[in-house]
Computed example of a mutant assay.
Amino acid sequence: MRAAILISVWALSPATAYALEADAVVGTWRLVTATRKIVDTGETVDAYGGPKPNGWLNYDKDGRMMVICSYEGRERPVANDKMTDEDRIKLHKSFFAYAGTYKIEGDKVIHNIDTSWNEAWTGTSQVRNIEYKDSVVTLTTAPFKFNLDGKMSVITLIWEKYPRS
């Protein structure tokens, strides 16, 4: 009887997030939202220019991954051949992309970067906490100095499976 009650409680309890198995992450993911928690103040703000940044993440079954993200509200230069250095700086600061291999270890995903928009990242590893619930993957960084203002921050990225099933 006690076992039946415990099973009933477990079955009726809300679904909880859990770490992904390596094959569950395979596919294309669309960025839904990106928030940034500033460690010193606890304030949470939009991480990439606004509530709707544009981003895509792909994990392949061969162990390769790619990610590309652009901030919301990026300014469009007049034309490629008319861009100023200031235009290029703004574009660089409001975009990131990298590719490499990945592996999942418990509740962490490790991206080993072999190509990046920023050569400072090439040859490094980016480690994220990873959770999965209802076709949504949440990636969270460890605290780090945010590139635009140097404030210690934690970024939380919410990705939804594409196409949504």
Rank of each mutant, 00 (worst) to 15 (best):
M1V: 13
A3R: 10
A3C: 11
A3Q: 13
A4W: 08
I5K: 11
I5L: 15
I7K: 10
V9Q: 10
W10D: 06
L12N: 14
L12D: 11
A15M: 04
Y18A: 09
A19Q: 08
L20C: 15
E21S: 08
A22N: 10
W29I: 01
L31K: 02
V32Y: 04
T35D: 05
R36A: 00
V39Q: 00
G42F: 06
G42L: 03
G42R: 04
E43K: 05
T44R: 03
V45S: 02
V45L: 01
D46G: 10
G49I: 03
G49H: 00
G49D: 00
G50C: 05
P51W: 08
P51K: 07
K52H: 13
N54F: 12
N54A: 09
G55H: 05
W56N: 00
N58Y: 14
N58R: 15
Y59T: 01
Y59V: 00
K61T: 07
D62L: 01
M66T: 06
M66D: 07
M66F: 07
C69Q: 08
S70N: 10
E72Q: 15
E75I: 06
R76A: 12
R76E: 09
K82T: 05
D85W: 10
D87Q: 03
K90H: 10
L91P: 07
F95C: 01
F95L: 00
F96C: 00
A97E: 02
Y98V: 06
T101E: 13
T101I: 10
T101Y: 07
K103R: 15
I104P: 01
D107N: 05
V109F: 06
H111T: 15
D114E: 03
E119Y: 11
E119L: 13
E119Q: 15
E119N: 15
W121C: 14
G123S: 02
G123Y: 02
T124F: 00
V127S: 10
N129Y: 06
I130Y: 01
I130V: 06
Y132T: 01
K133W: 00
D134L: 04
S135A: 14
V137Q: 00
T138G: 07
P143H: 12
P143E: 09
P143A: 11
F144P: 08
D149W: 14
K151Y: 02
V154A: 08
T156P: 03
W159G: 02
E160H: 15
E160G: 14
E160R: 14
K161W: 06
Y162H: 11
Y162V: 07
R164P: 11
